[in-house]
Simulated assay, not measured.
Amino acid sequence: MTTVALITSGANSVANFRGLLIEELIRRGCRVLALAPDWDEGSRGRTSALGAQPVAISLSRAGLSPRRDSVDLVRLTVLLRRLRPDATLTYFAKPNVYGNIAARAARVPRRVAMVEGLGFAFDASAGSGPKRRLLSALARGLFRAAFAGTDRVVFLNRDDEGFFHEHRMVCPDKAVQIGGIGVDLDAFAATPPVTSPVTFLLMARLLRGKGILEYAAAAEIVRKSHPTARFVLLGAFDANPESLSAADILPWVERGVIEWPGHVDDVRAQLAASSVFVLPAWAREGLPRSSQEASAMGRPVITTDVVGCRDTVEHGVNGLIVRPRDVADLARAMTRLIENPAEMIRMGEAGRRFAESHYDGRAKSRTLADLLLAR
């Protein structure tokens, strides 16, 4: 029996993002191991229910600690030698680096990495001082070393692929671009949008670069002329250095500008109760899963002209593209859809068609399985 090990720094992502892939691998007769550092009862249960085996590892999600990272790398190498998988799939920054170095050292026969965005180390919006330049240079060296030992590197958009080529972090003949990980189009079925009151929804980790503060500021502007409009924010704080804090969010909630239910495991009910999905990110993305889910459920998407985000919208067809960090432009786009409900519904219907042609998660999972099981 072929054994495939998924290596990640976020246990919650296994069932949420890799569920269809796990099902596809098991359908092909594979044994699936899911290696992550932060399992809890819920994430273990969801992963086990899919048929994969959760395996605990030590791996920090963010930050740079050479001593800890070196120890984690050795431990992961030893673990992979003991588990003896036939193939590994790594995703997120640290697993892509240390997971692939460990897999190569453990002589795993097939090694595939997936780049789901460039991450904090390459985020120009986080600054460009000497420390940032040093971090970026170090990250480039680590990725170059890690990806030298991969069989394939999967990218979700052409901009990220181009960035890795430009900085010689991946060989062109190893790169594969799949245009997003997709969603389960049956599970995320289209539903009629809520038209009264018009309800905007932003789902994201609470990072500055997701445009959350810009979303709240635009909501405050829109509510002056459309006081019944609702603005919902879903998400939790993060270990990332760019994470917001409660002090950033609560003042907007206390003034009634936005509603903040926190983190929700299953977002479908929140999407069904919404009218428009908004992702005003100003830091580059891979290809946002949240926008894919929103389109699949028939919601128009307002997003920014930023790497990854702009790939999810045809302006004026299935949503609107606004300038990043431009609160006034975002408020105008929101107001346009409030005042033109027929256009909002038409864009949502186009979004579902867009999802059917671009975001079929089962087809994407078959592609990933083919890459993992290739001989």
Score class of each variant (00 low, 15 high):
A5H: 03
T8E: 02
S13N: 06
L33S: 13
D38Q: 08
R46Q: 14
P54Y: 02
I57Y: 02
S65I: 03
R67I: 12
R67A: 13
D69P: 04
S70P: 00
D72Y: 02
V78G: 00
L83S: 10
T90C: 12
N96Y: 00
V97L: 11
I101Y: 01
I101V: 15
R107C: 11
R107N: 13
P109Y: 11
R110Y: 12
R111P: 02
D123Y: 06
A126S: 14
A137K: 05
G149M: 09
R158E: 15
D160Q: 12
R168L: 05
A175F: 01
I181N: 11
A187Y: 11
S196V: 05
R208L: 08
Y215W: 06
T228G: 08
D238K: 01
A239M: 08
N240W: 07
L244A: 12
P251N: 10
V253F: 02
E254K: 12
E259Y: 00
P280A: 09
W282Q: 10
M297L: 10
V301A: 02
I302Q: 06
T304W: 09
G308K: 07
D311Q: 06
T312Q: 14
A331P: 11
R336E: 14
R336C: 07
E339R: 10
P341T: 07
A342E: 15
M347W: 09
A350H: 11
R353C: 07
Y359C: 00
T367E: 15
T367N: 03
T367L: 11
L368V: 13
A369V: 00
